[in-house]
Structures are given as structure tokens and as C-alpha cells.
Design a protein around this nucleic acid. Structure first.
Lengths: 172, 172
DNA sequence: TATTGTTATACTCTATAACTATA
DNA sequence: TATAGTTATAGAGTATAACAATA
């Protein structure tokens, strides 16, 4: 009658831990480089890079949030920070008066260009170096599927699995 | 004469982005569960779990830090927090008077047991669900190699790649 | 001198709730 | 009413530097 498998086998654990630790190490190294070279946090870099890929360097706030930030106020905070530094500009959207359009400035694009080579260098040296061409393709495929699945899967706060029994607080 | 490949090809970018986004989504979901059920941050959970795997539930502070925390003061902070909640105990090490041994308490182990099923559930539902058995094994292999490589690779702050040319600050 | 760990401090970031304005 | 975004605020976490104690 038990519906939850309470454990993972060794392989599953290995995949999970490897994912967490590899991404953590990579992210830490990348953050270091971005901070050193561009005085940017990773989130800020992601926002700039997202804008850099967008047509006209513009995106609505809501669209910008996508996979990068998990709360609206957090995005507002970062957008303000970037705007103060002159890396982006915010303006009301033309069609929808509620929306704000965030646009990459020349300075923002320049900084992106300054930071990018080193960024790529870190990813190259740390993540890609020990992997074959096939490995990289396989990794992209598997993790791509996992990511797509996670995107589709809603947070299950009120779903099934809660805590089993008693009180959760462990002392005071 | 160019030594830095300034870009990644589509596959490499795909692998990198998929890694970052998948791990970010997974981590966010797991953090939510840990917070809800055990009032634990991910780092705190990692520390408890590391102790749970250690012989006698004990580790020296330095050893505990390993892949989890990137500064000593950060570890001290977390260890204090966990100790205040009665989840771990700290005591001077027997052999080396400088060292502190951190030990999981019964309450700590209990909380770990309370949190673990849901934790596994999230990993199962979010990461493993869309993957075949082979995918998982492959993922563990590839990311395991990447992680091992990163562990061995020292941070290259003073190494080769710095910023290319002019000033990095983009405005003020 | 090098290592282990703590403290003080300052800062970044995130999230929640209340709020404004437009659709 | 629902959506887009901001503000106020509070809390968690992190890192640096100075410090004490042991090896």
C-alpha cells in the first residue's frame, strides 16, 4: 500500500548528486568571472543575455522573468539595479499600458560583449573540457527533456505528498 | 592568433543552458519542499545529509564544507543555526585541538527522516520521471565526470583569461 | 608559519503583502 | 476581476577581514 518509493537507487542518486554538484561548481565559477570582469551577478547576466537574444533587445518584464527569477519583486529589483547602471531602459509598452518594456542599452550590449568571452571560457574549461562531442549532445538531449518536463510540471504545494506524521519542528 | 573560442556551438549552448535551467528548477522545487516540511534551506539539508552518511554522524567542520559551502564563515553560520535548533552538536576534536567535530543529534536524524521521503519524491517527479533507466545512468556518468573534473580544476582567478581590453565598469 | 574556526560587518538577494493602474 | 508592475519591509545567506588558538 506504500505509494511513495522512499529511496533512490545508486544510479539515480548518482545522477541527482552529480547534477546538483556539477551545476553548483559551474555556477560558482561563472559567478566569480562575471563579478570580476563585469560586476554582474548571475541573474543580472542572465537578464542581459536574454535581452541580447530578444528582437530589438526588448522584452516585457513578465516575459523576462521566465526561467530566471521566481518573484516579480525580485525582477523589479534587478531591473532597477540594471537601469541605475545604464545597462537597460524601462518604458511603458505601446500596446498594453500596464506592461513595461525593458530594453538593452548600448552600454548594456557592450558590457555583455566584454563579459561573454570569459564566460564562455569558464564553461569551456569547466564543463565541456572533459566531455566528448557525443557526451555534450547527449547531455543537451537528456537535460533538455528534463528541463522541459519541469517547466510543464506545476509546483505541487497542495498536491499529494506532504509530511508523513507528527510535528516537523525539531526542537523549539 | 586567437586563442579563445569566443562562442559555443548550438549543442554546447544547449547543454550548458539545459544544465543551468534544469538544476535551477529542480533546486527551487526541492528548496520549497524542504522549507515546507522541515524548515530547512538546501544548504542546511545538505549538511545534515552529509552528516547522516558519515560514520557516527560526525565530521570535522573543514570536511563538512566540501562541496556544500564556499566560505568558512558561511559554514560557521549554518552550523550555529543547526546547533541552535538542536539538530547537530559541536565539540572540539579529540586528536586535533583546533578542529571542531560536528555531530548529528537524534533530533537531526529524525528531521532528516521526516524530510527525506518528500525530497526523494520531488526528485523523482521532476528530474527522473521523464527519463529512462538508461538516460539516468548516462546522465550520472557524464555529469559525474564533469563534476570530478571541476573538483580537480582550481579556480583560475590569476590564470590566463582576464578581460580583453578597456574599462569594465559600464557607466558610473 | 600554516591551519582551524569564530566574529563583526556589510552587502546582496529574495519573498510576501499591500498597493496602484490598466484590461 | 484579473493582470502588470512597484514599494516597503523583513529575513536569509554570503563573503571579507581581523582575530584567537593550536600544530
Amino acid at each position: 500500500m506504500a505509494s511513495d518509493p522512499p529511496t533512490l537507487d545508486a544510479t539515480q542518486l548518482g545522477a541527482y548528486f552529480a547534477l546538483i554538484e556539477a551545476s553548483s561548481l559551474l555556477r560558482h565559477a561563472v559567478e566569480q568571472q562575471l563579478q570580476d570582469v563585469g560586476d554582474l551577478s548571475y541573474v543580472q547576466f542572465q537578464l542581459l543575455a536574454t535581452l541580447g537574444d530578444a528582437p530589438g533587445g526588448s522584452r516585457r518584464m513578465t516575459d523576462l522573468a521566465d526561467g530566471v527569477v521566481y518573484s516579480r519583486s525580485g525582477l523589479t529589483y534587478q531591473a532597477q539595479t540594471l537601469e541605475k547602471r545604464g545597462l537597460v531602459v524601462r518604458a511603458r509598452a505601446l500596446d498594453d499600458e500596464r506592461s513595461i518594456t525593458v530594453t538593452l542599452t548600448d552600454a548594456g550590449r557592450a558590457l555583455l560583449g566584454e563579459v561573454l568571452p570569459g564566460h564562455v571560457g569558464v564553461v569551456d574549461d569547466l564543463l565541456l573540457a572533459p566531455l566528448s562531442r557525443d557526451d555534450v549532445a547527449t547531455l543537451a538531449d537528456i537535460l533538455g527533456r528534463a528541463r522541459d518536463h519541469m517547466r510543464r510540471t506545476p509546483p505541487r504545494s497542495a498536491t499529494g505528498r506532504r509530511r508523513p506524521g507528527g510535528t516537523a519542528t525539531a526542537t523549539g
